[in-house]
Write a protein that binds this DNA or RNA. Structure first.
Lengths: 331, 331
DNA sequence: CTGAAAGCGCTAACAG
DNA sequence: CTGTTAGCGCTTTCAG
């Protein structure tokens, strides 16, 4: 068995020879440009089809200095939120006839820089990026933006390039309204530190809301899911007012849920729990979660790519809460 | 603001001019080839660094007809199992100094063919693919294998190219031993239909085991998670012997868990439940799950890529069960 | 040890 | 309407 080379790559030259025209004509026809009689058009199209001509994207990219592709760099490809986003982007990109280059920066600004360079060197037409860090990613993004159009997506590193993402302030307000609506007046926030723009915006929104509603007492806990979950469990109090926990990621919510279960604390009767992102994890663990509008985020970002004179735009999108058993009696 | 072109791409020509040598020499030095005095070496290296030379992968790929990259096509990028695999592959590929092109076939053989063609045209050095379908993907894979080295990973479409994946027979035996070990003598299988090699192999292994252990009664239910879960719940019986359900994916297991909860059936006291893949979903839902050896799968496949005379190999790897609350009393 | 030159496959003037 | 030509950035003989 093994790898048998049967069909070499068909070049434009091959097509030209068989169709008895010049490579220039083949190129024009295949690019849909004018300047070819209907007769030759058909002949070229036919032979190209018969020979199975596919084109060489590397040669085209070298010549045109663009590759008809869009690059997307996510900070963590294992996170279902980002794969859901990638999935939506794929659909939108396909509709624009573009391919997607998917890259993972593994939550590391060094790797992020490498990925940005790789994609820029490959001459992607535009780069969508969800930055690893709110401040430390900005130089990389600026570097990229100086050579190709860059759009920040879901997270940003300042007003250094257009941004499309969810309105974290709106989301956090909805979340707080929901949990206070279930009768909680002690509410805690748990999530990663303020290293990403979305985390920071959520924490800011949380604090603002609390400062305006003096009847609510609050608590904030940041850190990696397991550790932060232990801390937050210590904060739980049984008294006249009911406790609520808002987790900034489904992962944090699950860590909290497991920790509370271990301590014999019941959800939702003792403590109301909800989270952000509404990934398959929230569904699996039956946790109420705020659904980011990833379909709109994807659509808008691809639109921005097409629409070249859209520099400096900042687009916030809404979203909605998906209520599950962790914040209501009946599941 | 907007997109400001400040730094054009630095070419080998630029480096050559500044260093006062020919492009040929620069190329040799940068490729680490012999044929350059230590003095010029250093000078070239220095100027390349100072100018921020990055190289043009498109030009190199055009010239060399290879791109120093590996392509990976997964059937469903939203599935945490495949992103975990991608993550491992990234690590291994990086160690070999290669970039990874990630593509998603969206469980669709048509899209799968497109993705394969795209990557082949981009001259990836090798293609790793987890086929969408056990039989319908084979022509695409054969087409690809006729032009570039192809390795089937986790799933396969016949002995048409090397394969690296888990030993499904071993895995299913371990699963059956585990659930029968908890005292169950009625056991059901739930999963997707036999459209993928792994599904088929698991079902075959299930049937073989059952036929050898006549004291166990069995049941098989295939279909999409929610529907199949309803069916399987109808099968549950309360009697002298305890029931167990083995789910072929974490998604199926979660659907089963939710359906049983709705009917007031307790896990694990009434029914023992376990699944395959051990993704973050299983962790979230506290479900015992068989962990595929994705680290070994990734390592082996990258090794096969390097080792060019490895045609026709078939490598099966083991794995282990991660026990959680769905199959034991204490969590 | 080094440079000149050819050419990978493609597109875009420019002629005809 | 069509062909000739140059060249994108790179590597690699082949001379010197």
């Amino acid at each position: 068995m093994g790898h048998i080379v049967t069909s070499p790559h068909v070049t434009i030259r091959n097509v030209a020879d068989v169709a008895n025209v010049s490579t220039a004509t083949v190129s024009r026809v295949l690019s849909g440009l004018p300047g070819a009689s209907e007769e030759t058009r058909q002949r070229v199209l036919k032979t190209a089809r018969e020979l199975g001509y596919q084109g060489d994207p590397n040669a085209t990219a070298l010549r045109l200095r663009k590759s008809n592709t869009i690059g997307i760099i996510v900070p963590d490809i294992v996170n279902p939120f980002f794969t859901a986003l990638i999935h939506e982007l794929e659909t939108c990109a396909q509709q624009s006839g573009k391919d997607l280059f998917i890259a993972n920066s593994q939550n590391d600004v060094i790797i992020e820089r490498q990925r940005v360079q790789t994609l820029a060197n490959r001459r992607v037409d535009a780069l969508l990026i969800s930055p690893v860090h709110r401040t430390m990613s900005s130089s990389t993004i600026q570097w990229a933006h100086s050579r190709i159009p860059v759009i920040q997506i879901d997270r940003h590193a300042g007003h250094i390039a257009p941004y499309v993402g969810a309105d974290q302030n709106y989301a956090m307000n909805k979340a707080l309204e929901h949990v206070t609506g279930t009768g909680c007046s002690r509410v805690a926030y748990i999530g990663y530190p303020e290293s990403t723009s979305s985390s920071k915006e959520r924490i800011d929104a949380f604090n603002t809301y609390i400062s305006r509603h003096t009847s609510i007492s609050s608590h904030i806990e940041t850190g990696l899911p397991p550790h932060a979950a232990q801390q937050i469990a210590d904060w739980i109090e049984f008294g006249e007012c009911k406790d609520a926990i808002i987790a900034s990621s489904d992962l944090h919510a699950i860590a909290v849920k497991l920790e509370l279960q271990r301590r014999g604390i019941n959800i939702p009767s003792d403590v109301v729990l909800m989270s952000f992102d509404n990934t398959s994890l929230a569904d699996a663990a039956n946790i109420t979660s705020f659904q980011q509008p990833i379909d709109l985020i994807a659509r808008k970002s691809i639109e921005l790519v097409e629409d070249s004179d859209s520099t400096g735009e900042v687009i916030f999108l809404a979203g909605r809460i998906v209520i599950r058993g962790s914040s209501q009696r009946e599941s």
